[in-house]
Design a protein around this nucleic acid. Structure first.
Length: 116
DNA sequence: AGCTTGACTTTGA
DNA sequence: GTCAAAGCCAAGC
């Protein structure tokens, strides 16, 4: 369980970053899963918005966070769109047409792994 | 203060 | 199974 922070927006960002940082190599998760773990399932967009601020946190493996369909929706927001897919494949995650193969297999649920 | 947009998800047809 | 619409919260204009 990561640090429980206040419900302020800024802390929400930190929470998202903390969870994303805990994602092991070769694993991926979805915005909704993170949002759900943070207790804001309906605010899945905010997770994406939080990732938008990941530019301030270079250590955040945002490439391991995809939409619920396993699609690399945010690849364009990387410095190099190809880098996201390349990095995932390097970690053992096969990606074809911006979509993660066997997404279910590589899926990493924070609620289960971090044990709320 | 109000409207539009956005790295999403869920539900209904 | 797919497609369209609604819901959600925050930032930018």
């Amino acid at each position: 369980m990561i640090n429980r922070l206040s419900d302020t927006t800024k802390d929400f960002f930190e929470q998202v970053f903390a969870v994303v940082k805990e994602i092991p190599e070769g694993r991926v998760t979805s915005y909704g899963a993170i949002a759900n773990y943070l207790g804001a399932k309906k605010s899945s967009r905010m997770v994406g918005w939080a990732m938008n601020a990941c530019h301030n946190r270079p250590e955040i493996p945002a490439h391991r966070v995809v939409n619920r369909n396993g699609l690399l929706t945010g690849k364009m927001h990387f410095c190099s769109p190809n880098d996201m897919q390349n990095r995932l494949e390097k970690e053992g995650v096969k990606v074809v047409s911006d979509q993660i193969m066997d997404f279910k297999l590589h899926f990493w649920d924070p609620e289960e792994e971090l044990k709320v």
